[in-house]
Amino acid sequence: MTTAVGRTGSDSEAFWADVEAGGLPLRRCRHCTRTFVLPLPSCPYCATEDPEVIQAKGTGSVYSWVVVHHAFDPAFDGDVPYVVAAVQLDEGARVYGRLEGIPFDAIAPDLTVERVAPAGDGRPPLVFRPLARTPA
């Protein structure tokens, strides 16, 4: 079942449903306490089973980013150019999200960002913006 652009209604569905409702669920290992996004049955760092689900605060920093100028899926033609960032959340996990509210050439590594409330209307469900502007 295709429920929205790019989604197949599989293991990610609970994640996106939560994200669309304003949450940002992470898995946290009950043993080593490291966090991760993917819905693995066990911790990818120490193999402990049954990680717990926690909610991220939605703040973090930019680890890397891509400015997409060509949408290989026509569903995103209307969005280009746009930024996809790999955001290192304060809880430790890395997550992908759109990055908005900053000129492309001002994006820098370690830029601190915060989650923007989901807009709905088919907009990307996970968007970050700069947390605070660096004083000139």
Binding site: R7, S10, W65, V66, V68, H70, D79, Y96, P125
Partner: peptide, 24 residues
């Protein structure tokens, strides 16, 4: 499994995935 965590963001193709590595 992980594709579903990229596609809804418009992060859909190899040039984009590998650009993320190249930038870092």
């Amino acid at each position: 499994m992980a594709a579903d965590f990229r596609y809804p963001l418009g992060f859909t193709a190899y040039p984009q995935f590998i650009a993320m590595w190249a930038r870092r």
